[in-house]
Computed example of a mutant assay.
Amino acid sequence: MAKLIYVTNVSIDGYIEDEKGVFAWLPPDDEVFTFTTDLLRSAGTFLYGRRLYESMAVWETDASLAARSDLMAEFASVWQVADKIVYSTTLTTTATARTSVERRFDPAAVRRLKATAGSDITIGGADLAAQAIRAGLVDECQLIVWPTTVGGGKPGLPTGVRTDYEFLGERRFRNGVVLLRYRPLAD
């Protein structure tokens, strides 16, 4: 069975974006970028909320990104070969190949996907991940913690939900970023 892995960048104070909805506070870094590319390479399907999908679609729709460096070209290639499922009540078409739209998050459908997938699945977007966490579907959280605080905004993990986690490991990067890996404990 494939694992459903929630991967997100967060500030030290736990936010994925600031109060203005901006997540551009993340400084670019080749080491972290390469790690993220390798992490996504291991997944065959990406589950996205609409906003995250629209920000990631540029890796297929804007060829100038891949032309900037070999690292960016590799990331674009990895992103493009994966299947994408976008959960949106407003999106009617997608700008990228290998992409489908679902109107609502269906835990039973995600369970079936996990049971039949040949490789792991990542989920991105705090609101979508919160639904999966509440449904008990997330097998691992990988938090890429950046050395900054933003003071408020959208939290990376759901509020109002109690979940205990087992620590799986960490990885430290030269720029002060730390990857923290956790597995939710069964109720």
Rank of each mutant, 00 (worst) to 15 (best):
K20N: 14
D62F: 07
D13T: 11
V78Q: 14
R172P: 02
V161L: 15
F46R: 10
D83P: 03
G153P: 10
T90C: 00
A76C: 13
Y6F: 09
R174A: 15
T89P: 06
M56A: 11
Y87D: 05
V177S: 14
F75H: 13
D187W: 08
T92Q: 09
Y53R: 01
L179F: 08
D18G: 11
I5T: 00
D70I: 01
Y87S: 08
T90W: 00
T36G: 00
V145L: 14
A108G: 09
E17F: 03
K20A: 12
T92D: 09
R172G: 11
T149A: 10
D120W: 01
E54L: 07
A66Q: 05
A109G: 08
V161P: 05
T93Y: 01
F35N: 08
L157I: 10
E140T: 08
A73E: 11
S119N: 06
P27L: 09
I123E: 00
A126V: 04
W79P: 00
I85Y: 08
A57H: 03
L143I: 11
S64Q: 03
K84R: 04
A73Y: 09
N175W: 06
L71Y: 06
A108Y: 06
K154T: 15
G124Q: 13
E54P: 02
Y48F: 15
E60Q: 13
F35V: 00
M1G: 06
R98A: 11
A129K: 06
L185N: 06
T163P: 10
V32R: 04
L47P: 01
I144Y: 15
E166R: 12
G169L: 14
I16C: 13
F75V: 10
G176K: 00
V145C: 15
L179H: 10
K154D: 03
T61L: 14
G152L: 02
V78S: 10
D13C: 08
F105P: 05
S42K: 12
A130K: 07
A97T: 13
R112D: 13
G136D: 07
L65R: 12
A66E: 06
Y53G: 03
S69W: 09
A108T: 04
L179P: 04
P155M: 10
L26C: 06
G151P: 04
Y165V: 13
L180V: 13
T96S: 13
R41C: 02
R162A: 15
R172A: 08
G124F: 01
E54D: 07
A126E: 12
A117S: 15
L39D: 05
D70M: 00
D29P: 01
L91T: 00
R171W: 02
F105Y: 11
V145W: 15
G136Y: 01
D29W: 02
G160V: 04
D18I: 03
R183A: 10
V10L: 10
R112M: 13
T94Y: 05
L4C: 05
W146K: 08
L71E: 10
